[in-house]
Design a protein around this nucleic acid. Structure first.
Lengths: 135, 135
DNA sequence: ATCTCTGAGTCTTGAAATTGAACTTAGAGC
DNA sequence: GCTCTAAGTTCAATTTCAAGACTCAGAGAT
């Protein structure tokens, strides 16, 4: 997780990833949403691409030249459970309101949630969870 | 999640929380583990206490005066699923090795994992997950 | 009482990162 | 050509950070 902190441990990076999860893919849109300095945004996007979480992908608006959008790569999308767990935490402890986002099953359309499961697939409430260091 | 990024969006904070999850509670132990500058560590611990994620708790080593340890509060422990999901991500994409930690059910001792569940409690593989913005 | 030791910080100062705003660039269409 | 736009880049001013020396409070020894 040390390396995760290296990439994610930054005021803008988490917010940029949230934008990416929300489907915002363009520089100026992110800049407008986050009010981040353009230089900071450019720098973080570059790092996220270098780290393989985002992927520059060309797109073309009719009447404009080709540009690059920033899409989540597989590695980035794999942060979805982390993202969803963090969102749930924020709903409970910070905003006390549902976040304007959910994750759904692409096949059934069911709304998904993150849970702790034991080895038999039973849901275990958070209060029973204990962390253990192996050695 | 904006506020989450406010507290967590920092190079040291994530690592400090990891220490806390690993059961390290004392200033000098964390300092030795992380090699963080003492001033940075003091500052981040203060913020985490202010944000309610850690709780200063007096302890006393025989032959020493009373000091404060930093324990996860309930709000902090509620980050366990986030933490576990992030750890799983790191195992898959960064270290490619199991992290030296697991979360267990305090009643059965079973090792726990984080999964996405649909509304009927069935596990849904990550690849079928789609994020949707509600409006 | 005084001395010394330890864990937990604080202080100081040079180095690095960040901000905000203006500027640049590459192509599309007129 | 000329102009327009999204996507950056550049730069001076400011803010934050790092490293390590220093301080502090109490405990036990002398």
């Amino acid at each position: 997780m040390a390396l995760a902190a290296d990439v994610l441990g930054d005021r803008w990076t988490l917010l940029i990833l949230r934008e990416a999860f929300y489907g915002v893919t363009r520089f100026d849109d992110m800049q407008a949403d986050l009010c981040a300095p353009r230089s900071a945004l450019a720098d973080r996007l570059r790092r996220l691409v270098d780290a393989g979480l985002l992927k520059k992908t060309p797109y073309r608006e009719p009447g404009s030249r080709a540009r690059d959008a920033y899409l989540l790569s597989e590695r980035g999308r794999d942060l979805a459970p982390t993202f969803l767990a963090l969102t749930a935490w924020g709903e409970k402890h910070i905003t006390r309101q549902p976040a304007p986002v959910d994750i759904r099953d692409s096949e059934t359309g069911a709304r998904l949630r993150v849970e702790l499961l034991d080895d038999q697939g039973f849901v275990v409430p958070l209060r029973r969870a204990r962390l253990r260091l192996r050695r």
